[in-house]
Computed example of a mutant assay.
Amino acid sequence: MNLRSLILALIVALMMALVGCASKNHAPDQTPPVLVSEDTWRQVDWDIVTASLTAKGSAKDYARSSMANWRDLAYQRTEADFIPWFTGYWTQQWLTLKVAWYKVSTGKETDPAKRMANYLQEQYHNRVLDPVAKQIDPGAVMEQTTKLYIQLLGTQLQGIAPRYDVPLDQLDRRFKDIPAIELAPPPNRNASLYQIIHIDPVVKLPAYVALVNQIRNTPSGAGAGPSDASISSVAQRTSEKLEATLPTRGVAGAVAAAVGRVAGTMISLAVSGFGAIAHEKERSEMVEQLRVILSAALDDERRNLMDNPTAGVMAGVYHLSGHIEGSLIKTFTPSVELEPIPQDLPPPGEQPLQDNKSDEQAPSDDGKATE
Rank of each mutant, 00 (worst) to 15 (best):
E325N: 08
V251Q: 00
Q289W: 05
M314D: 01
P352Q: 08
S358P: 07
D355N: 15
P340C: 08
E337G: 11
L246P: 03
L328T: 06
Q354A: 13
I267F: 05
A315D: 03
K357R: 15
G322D: 06
G349P: 01
L290F: 00
L294H: 01
R261I: 02
Q351W: 07
Q361C: 06
V259F: 08
Y318R: 06
G275C: 07
E285H: 07
E282C: 08
P342K: 14
A278G: 15
N308S: 12
P347I: 10
P346I: 14
Q361Y: 04
P347D: 09
L269P: 03
A297G: 13
F274M: 03
A254L: 05
R291F: 01
F332E: 10
V287Q: 00
R302G: 02
H319A: 08
V271N: 02
D355L: 13
Y318N: 05
G367S: 03
R249N: 13
E337D: 12
V262G: 14
E339D: 14
S335A: 14
H323L: 15
V292D: 09
E301Q: 13
L328C: 02
S335C: 11
G253C: 07
V292G: 07
G322W: 08
G253T: 04
D307S: 11
E288V: 12
S284T: 12
E339M: 12
M306D: 06
A263M: 11
R261C: 09
T370Y: 09
L298W: 05
R283C: 09
E350G: 03
P340L: 08
A270W: 00
P346G: 13
D365S: 12
E280M: 11
R249F: 10
